[in-house]
């Protein structure tokens, strides 16, 4: 018998890149299923095209261009695909989804060196690319098909944005939405944002499985709540209230699943909290003062750029060193 000799430790935790990524996929499933239930087969098609093309592009790039071992087994492309799909309206045509996937995997991920090397969240880069390239499609939100009064043209946030730009009181719009219905079915917007409750369920799953720590997400929520509380307190006719801001748009999806992406978020808890505060504040600034109705994607991407700096500035306290 030949003994196996290697340095300590001789055992390993249950974690692997693949298991962590699979956990994220599992956590996203409730929200994805909700979106399919609400929006129907076209949403299923968007998700499927997005996931398949992300995985396909990664395979093509690693095998065809880089002549390396394929990395699709680590499941990270599936996560990117699912997140990208959930960030698009269900009316997005299939070729547009594929373009987004190509940008996400090809430009945002693989050009930087693949998994772990990218500075910006790939799914968000894909989404923002589509948003600025095809604004008409990307901002024409169609309400869920199962609702009798399916409507076209606006989400709560875009109506509010218009109101703010036009100077009309926002209360007229916010009063149309009850918080309860927003929690269960966030009318309009990207497909994956439809059910806040399902997203939060996935977030709790990730925290319980210790895949992520909750600090980034919680600090985003807290900052959004606090910032909007201050503005709303000053002028409740002009600015929307905290609960509306927390529940509307892509905030929950972004805070739970995009801002917490390992690669593009700070390592330390302290850095994570600062990162979250930055995202929350920027989101609110864009929502209140920007020309785009929604700012979560931009806020996260901007803060992504600060991650190396945050990693350098906010380190964990070392043992026995003042």
């Amino acid at each position: 018998m030949k003994l196996l000799v290697s340095p300590n430790p001789h055992i390993h935790s249950k974690w692997s890149t693949r298991s962590l990524m699979t956990d994220v996929v599992i956590a996203l499933l409730p929200a994805a299923i909700c979106s399919v239930v609400f929006y129907g087969w076209r949403e299923a098609l968007v998700l499927a095209v997005s996931v398949l093309s992300c995985v396909g592009f990664e395979w093509l790039i690693t095998r065809g261009l880089m002549k390396q071992k394929s990395t699709i087994c680590d499941m990270s492309a599936v996560v990117t695909g699912l997140l990208l799909g959930m960030n698009l309206p269900f009316t997005t045509p299939w070729w547009m989804v594929m373009t987004g996937a190509l940008v996400a995997i090809g430009i945002a991920k693989m050009t930087f060196g693949g998994l772990g090397q990218n500075v910006f969240n790939p799914a968000l880069v894909g989404r923002v690319f589509l948003l600025v390239s095809f604004p008409a499609v990307m901002t024409t939100w169609v309400g869920p098909v199962h609702f009798a009064d399916a409507y076209t043209g606006s989400t709560p946030l875009s109506s509010v944005n218009e109101a703010i730009l036009n100077g009309t009181p926002v209360t007229e719009i916010t009063s149309q939405y009850s918080y309860g219905s927003m929690l269960l079915a966030n009318l309009g917007g990207s497909a994956g944002e439809i059910c806040a409750l399902a997203l939060l369920l996935g977030f709790v799953y990730l925290c319980v499985r210790k895949v992520i720590k909750p600090w980034i997400t919680l600090s985003i929520f807290a900052t959004v709540a606090l910032t909007s509380l201050i503005f709303w307190g000053v002028d409740s006719a002009r600015f929307t209230d905290p609960a509306f801001n927390l529940l509307s748009g892509g905030l929950i999806l972004g805070a739970c699943f995009m801002a917490t992406d390992y690669v593009t978020s700070p390592m330390s808890t302290k850095g994570g909290i600062i990162f979250g505060i930055g995202i929350g504040f920027l989101t609110m600034m864009i929502r209140y003062f920007g020309s785009y109705p929604e700012g979560v994607s931009f806020a996260i991407l901007i803060m992504n750029a600060f991650v190396p700096l945050l990693n350098r500035w906010f380190k964990q306290k070392k043992f026995g060193r003042a």
Partner: peptide, 27 residues
């Protein structure tokens, strides 16, 4: 073999689990 074999080395995904686990607070 199953208990002790190391898995194949992959790229760092910057999850920070090593820094979280280090009892000396190192990175």
């Amino acid at each position: 073999e199953k208990q002790t074999a190391r898995g194949e080395e992959g790229p760092c995904i910057r999850c920070g689990k090593c820094a979280e686990a280090c009892p000396m607070g190192l990175e």
